[in-house]
Design a protein around this nucleic acid. Structure first.
Lengths: 124, 124, 124, 124
DNA sequence: GTGGTCTAGACCACT
DNA sequence: GTGGTCTAGACCACC
């Protein structure tokens, strides 16, 4: 499993881990039932504290994406892709709505917003 | 000057103040040279710590939107609307780009993104 | 606020704190909006690590019983008594059902179970 | 011998084994002197580690319900039914007492507790 | 002052 | 080996 940590980011390390694992589940790179690296192994690999990894796994379990079995390890939970899709769709919607609201606050016309959106669609 | 503080928001109070003052400058409700309330007066009005208001004014001054004259008070700086416009445009662009990137990560097609964008343009 | 910690208990310290605070909310000893002791203060008082107290407060916030405001402290959340009542009722029901099931497994008759229950009702 | 393991249960696997063997002794499905499956055989059957089965048998032996003879295997010990009955009775009593205490903590009246108990007696 | 995050160890129970 | 909990420090951002 590939996880990239940016220590300089303002985003907490444990959130970075949570997010990247969620993305990998969405993309099918991590499949249901598959084992995650052990807390200690991932901590060693990323050169961070085991507690930080554990906090990430706890978040994932709390959200129902991961199932942790004492003494055995942590595993991708069953059938969460629909849930994840819904969650993600709402986030995209929220992000777009926030951007549009900001643009309106700043005084942009609808035409300007649409133009900017199209430019971004091509660039990104 | 009207400032609304949401203590329950995740956004720091000082940022809420900075943002609302910037919006009021953009909308022309605050004009160049106009005096801002004193740090202590605004703190009393909003029932928050004077240090928090001071931090907000410091941010505004650092960005060049406000000019503080020792012993006299803080005033809206001259000719910042163009600067502000640029800054804001970049923020909207960044917000839109982030939303689009999230959508792509989640696997949305361009058509789906455009549809969602249009829905939001009409709703917001 | 009175919290009793039993280091010798098998129950984690943070759970002991969570439980006792929930009980005090139920009994009205802690009222909506009331401030909890700061993480560090309670840690000092109970002579445990601040992280342990924080974990307890995190659990309470996650369940919606407490609202934490950055830089200000943690407070009892509004209107959770009905939620708490429901939660608690289910727990009692579960505990009773488990006890009855155990008794049946062991071969006790309904009469024996009722007799035992009455004895306990008078003793406890 | 039939043992059902629930990996998703919060109860340790070795305790699940101990409990189910005790129940089968109580119900007379396992009789005094009868041989238990070998540690390795049961481990293979349940697809768990032999160490886990060993721990379960150790617990049973420590409590005096099972007698392990080196090189021959493990056997149900003689005359433990009375002991088992007593132990079980205490467990049921403890479980009931805990439930009643929880109910009292939550503020339930004796009448409410009795009503709930009767409902559960009929349902379970 | 407050909470939010992180570290580098430790001990325990379960597999 | 695994995860679950705990300690005693640290630095940061916010009030």
């Amino acid at each position: 499993m590939k996880i990239m940590i940016y220590h300089s980011s303002m985003q907490p390390i444990y959130e970075q881990i949570v997010e990247q694992i969620k993305i990998q589940v969405m993309h099918g790179e991590l499949k249901c039932g598959e084992a995650l690296p052990s807390v200690r192994a991932l901590a060693r690999e990323l050169k961070i504290s085991a507690l930080t990894v554990k906090k990430a796994y706890d978040c994932l379990e709390q959200d129902g994406f991961v199932l942790t079995v004492h003494g055995k390890g942590s595993f991708i939970a069953e059938g969460n892709r629909e849930l994840l899709e819904e969650e993600w769709k709402k986030e995209v919607e929220k992000a777009l709505a926030k951007a549009v609201e900001q643009g309106r606050n700043y005084g942009m016309t609808d035409a300007q917003l649409r133009e900017l959106f199209e430019i971004i669609m091509e660039e990104v």
